[in-house]
């Protein structure tokens, strides 16, 4: 927004004050996220910038906290770093195992949420859908209901049906995370289906395609960007979820957020900051993907940016 040439002096002052205010607010938004990145390379176990760091002295920085992520929980962290050291890390390091659990739970719950959610969004976007409003409200509610209530409810429910005795690892957490991810899938997929030209499906049907072919060849390519961003949202929701895991997860079902939670509650060490840094980098990658997908979706549907 450019300042018009006829602006008075007061308006000019206000305009620049306004820009300064906006900059400060943007700083408030982004600084807390970026500040952990340099701090995670701290050579000392402090949560603040040491003098050496401020002077950019290389000895003030180290990757020891990242190293700790690999060695913590290993049987023999002092062994020479060869093949056996890395297999030890891969099988025993606490953070590596937490990461594996997080990815497994995240993938399965994402598949479940995206599959069910996409099909449901197709139904919800049809004009003839009965009871659309109330059903939509129910399907979005996992996003609105406080997580502690969901976790409490699931704790009782799972213990009453004895889900931990079914012999399927992570099942309870996967189902719960799928539930929490579903609203995001519904929202993003229905958003891409808004303005979807239903005459395309009719045209495909009149040309002899059965409903499955129509879906795979006509609808799916058009809504795919929405489906993928919904899936990413669902994955992030699961990847970041801690309360349900704390309440219903078994003792061996450690995930990254749970490990972080324990780390923060007991003794916060800069190792947490190195995990945080990695997570920030992952979220930057995901955000970029979603942004690119959104643009692609707009281009596909012929919606030029306003």
């Amino acid at each position: 927004m450019a300042l018009p040439t006829h602006a008075s002096r007061l308006e000019r002052i206000w305009h620049y004050t306004y820009l300064v205010i906006c900059t400060l607010i943007f700083l408030f938004l982004i600084a807390p996220i970026l500040v952990v990145i340099p701090l995670s390379f701290n050579a000392e176990p402090y949560f603040t910038f040491t003098e050496k760091m401020l002077k950019l002295d290389p000895t003030g920085f180290s990757t020891r906290w990242y190293d700790l992520l690999l060695t913590f929980g290993m049987t023999d962290p002092e062994a020479p770093r060869g093949w056996s050291w890395w297999t030890d890390t891969w099988t025993n390091a606490a953070w590596i195992n937490a990461a594996k659990n997080s990815v497994i739970i995240g993938l399965f719950s994402t598949v479940l949420a995206t599959g069910l959610g996409t099909i449901a969004a197709l139904g919800l976007s049809r004009p003839e859908m009965p009871g659309r409003r109330i059903i939509m409200a129910i399907l979005i509610s996992p996003m609105i209901v406080p997580i502690i209530i969901v976790a409490t409810g699931l704790f009782f429910f799972y213990s009453s049906i004895g889900i931990q005795n079914w012999g399927i690892p992570y099942l309870g957490v996967i189902l719960a995370h799928a539930t929490l991810g579903i609203p995001f899938v519904i929202i993003t997929v229905t958003a891409t289906l808004v303005g979807f030209d239903h005459s395309l499906t009719r045209a495909s049907a009149s040309l002899g395609a059965d409903p499955v072919t129509t879906f795979m060849r006509v609808q799916m390519p058009l809504i795919l960007p929405g489906v993928v961003s919904g899936a990413l949202f669902a994955f992030v929701t699961s990847f970041d979820e801690v309360v349900v895991v704390l309440f219903v997860g078994g003792l061996d079902e450690q995930t990254i957020p749970r490990q972080m939670w324990n780390g923060i509650r007991e003794q916060i060490s800069p190792a947490i900051l190195s995990v945080a840094t990695i997570l920030v980098l992952i979220s930057i990658a995901l955000l970029t993907t979603v942004e690119l997908l959104r643009r692609r979706s707009e281009r596909l549907r012929g919606m030029s940016p306003q």
């Binding site: 069910l116 959610g117 099909i119 449901a120 197709l122 139904g123 919800l124 049809r126 003839e128 859908m129 009965p130 059903i135 129910i138 399907l139 509610s141 996992p142 209901v145 209530i149 969901v150 409490t152 409810g153 699931l154 009782f156 429910f157 799972y158 009453s160 189902l175 719960a176 799928a178 539930t179 579903i182």
Partner: peptide, 28 residues
């Protein structure tokens, strides 16, 4: 027929949410 088809698409998810979300909260 169209209404039924639309509902059938939503039904699996609705059943899933009722089972893993609404019922546990109701039980609580």
């Amino acid at each position: 027929h169209a209404r039924r088809r639309a509902f059938l698409l939503v039904a699996p998810l609705l059943a899933f949410i009722l089972l893993t979300f609404v019922m546990p909260i109701g039980q609580m």
